[in-house]
């Protein structure tokens, strides 16, 4: 069970969290303006990174807030967590 550092509450076990997939994918302001190809990109295409992955978590059974995290998907170790709207911090790549 992972331990996840909620930027609002601190380190908590994984069971308190919901996973939210890849981070920093903004919903288009006017979806109607997008062609099918671009809309598909928003809907479905994900980096599925093997390595450092920026992703969303929600402290569901806690403060209930969404936040972002950098996690190495090769080890499941977190490098950072940060609030929604903040830029991903610079991390040294292991």
């Amino acid at each position: 069970m992972l331990i996840i550092n909620c930027p609002y509450c601190g380190a908590r076990p994984e069971l308190e969290f919901a996973y939210g997939g890849q981070a920093h994918i903004d919903r288009p302001v006017q979806p109607a303006d997008l062609n099918d190809e671009d809309w598909t990109g928003y809907l479905y295409l994900r980096e599925n990174t093997k390595g450092i992955h920026a992703e969303r978590w929600r402290h569901l059974h806690g403060c209930a807030r969404f936040f972002n995290a950098l996690r190495d998907t090769r080890t499941d170790h977190f490098l950072a967590t940060y609030k929604v709207g903040e830029k991903a911090p610079e991390v040294t790549r292991p």
């Binding site: 919901a18 939210g20 903004d26 919903r27 929600r58 209930a64 807030r65 969404f66 929604v84 709207g85």
Partner: peptide
């Protein structure tokens, strides 16, 4: 509710 929170917190600030 989860879906509502998602849009509200992450898209419609």
């Amino acid at each position: 509710l989860g879906m509502m929170e998602d849009y509200l917190q992450t898209e419609w600030g």
